[in-house]
């Protein structure tokens, strides 16, 4: 069809809700997709796999120096100790925020994100705005998120262009050293583990 370069998807309804329904109907009718599996997939990422997992990893690193050392040297294995592993987390690297460095993570080419510890990325992480600006003006983006950097901090941006996935280990908030892991985890927001918030901050 040299003069007809239509893309196959244009044959589906253009309204996204109708399009999703049409695709589902076709795939189920053809015996390619089990509708119960769709519900199970949605439930998994709605309820089981999300930033509550990453917060437990961070809390354990704060509470347990030996675990933190393992996490920084072989993140995939250390994270698997807590039972978090799998799709989009096959090759984890944890980067530690210190008084000298503030880390933040982006995927400028698509939406790569460490699913086993953070779940499905939020819309802002996948937005054109964040993908465009995070590598060129990270300090302006951080200011927009309300992150106040220390004068001593250099910014390091990790653009996830392969199957390596990055998790930020935020600095532990002052005065939290007596807390147990459960309480520490409550101080760790999703954005703090992407690098667009500080731990303990709203």
């Amino acid at each position: 069809m040299p003069h007809d370069h239509h893309e196959p998807h244009s044959l589906l309804p253009s309204d996204p809700e109708l399009r999703a329904r049409a695709l589902e109907t076709i795939l189920v009718q053809k015996g390619l997709v089990d509708p119960a599996a769709l519900s199970a997939l949605i439930d998994t990422y709605q309820n089981d796999i999300g930033p509550q997992n990453g917060a437990r990893v961070v809390a354990r690193a704060w509470a347990n120096p030996a675990f933190k050392a393992r996490l920084l040297s072989d993140a995939t294995a250390a994270i698997a100790e807590l039972g978090f592993a799998g799709r989009q987390g096959e090759h984890m690297v944890v980067v530690e925020n210190t008084a000298a460095v503030h880390n933040m993570v982006v995927c400028t080419l698509c939406s790569c994100y460490p699913w086993p510890v953070l779940g499905i990325p939020p819309a802002w992480y996948k937005s054109d705005e964040y993908r465009s600006r995070a590598v060129k003006e990270p300090r302006a983006v951080l200011a927009e998120f309300g992150v106040a950097l220390l004068g001593s901090q250099k910014v390091r941006v990790w653009d996830s262009s392969a199957e390596v996935r990055y998790l930020v280990l935020p600095m532990q908030p002052e005065g939290s050293h007596e807390l147990d892991e459960g309480a520490l985890a409550n101080l760790v927001s999703r954005n703090a583990m992407i690098g667009t918030a500080l731990a303990g901050a709203e």
Binding site: T108, A123, W124, S127, Y130, R131, S132, V141
Partner: peptide
């Protein structure tokens, strides 16, 4: 899709 470094507005719904 290669967006890095392009000018863009505020990040939405942070």
């Amino acid at each position: 899709h290669d967006l890095g470094g392009r000018p863009a507005g505020p990040v939405p719904d942070k």
